[in-house]
């Protein structure tokens, strides 16, 4: 069993640059920030290292950080420009019984994160959900389709974004409220 700081040290020593920082201020759990395009390397290391053995991905959540600039678009709605979208990975080791939280942040306009589907299979649907809801593109994901929304939902419309505008029409049909 290892604490988050120890894990951070191991990661920093082994992988260096990829690991960005550790955020210890949060009241409940320290979060390790990682490069979005290198997350699969970190994941694989975390899973296969005999000291760490993070064999299970508890949760993968896409988050709209909403830390950009709020501007009005031409119809008068608030739209967020700039800032980041993040993905949080909650890992657990069923053998060593320790936990760790990873975080990657990618720019909002072109959010691309490497998929960890081939490290933990259960990331498959979680990543699809994050793509569907937040609009984060997972590179090298085998089947990145929408999962909860209809397949023919408007492109680039992701409901869990903070500036999501509820559409008036769906496939030409008026949506009644």
């Amino acid at each position: 069993m290892k604490t988050a700081e120890e894990i951070f040290e191991i990661l920093k020593n082994e992988l260096g640059e990829i690991i960005l920082s550790i955020d210890k201020d949060t009241p409940t759990e320290p979060i390790i920030s990682v490069e979005p395009l290198k997350i699969h390397i970190v994941s694989k290391f975390l899973r296969d290292n005999s000291e760490l053995q993070f064999d299970s991905l508890m949760c993968l959540s896409g988050v709209d950080d909403a830390n950009g600039k709020k501007v009005k678009d031409n119809e008068g709605y608030d739209v967020i420009e700039g800032g980041t979208l993040s993905v949080y990975y909650h890992l657990y080791s069923t053998v060593l019984k320790h936990k760790i939280t990873l975080k990657v942040s990618a720019p909002r306009e072109d959010a691309k994160v490497e998929s960890v589907e081939n490290v933990w299979k259960c990331a498959d649907w979680h990543e699809r959900e994050a793509y569907d809801m937040i609009g984060i593109k997972f590179l090298n994901h085998p089947d990145l389709r929408r999962i909860l929304m209809p397949y023919d939902w408007e492109e680039n419309s992701h409901p869990l974004r903070k500036d999501f505008k509820v559409p008036e029409f769906y496939q030409g049909m008026k949506i009644p409220y």
Binding site: D25, T26, P27, T28, E29, I31, M58, C59, S61, V63, D64, Y88, H90, T101, L160
Partner: peptide
Amino acid sequence: GTVYSRVENPRGELGYFIISDGNTNPFR
């Protein structure tokens, strides 16, 4: 801050990942 808390539901691990931005509403 953020919290990930999990309980053993009849169907398995039910986890809630909550991000608070210090408001009365959860951020995520």
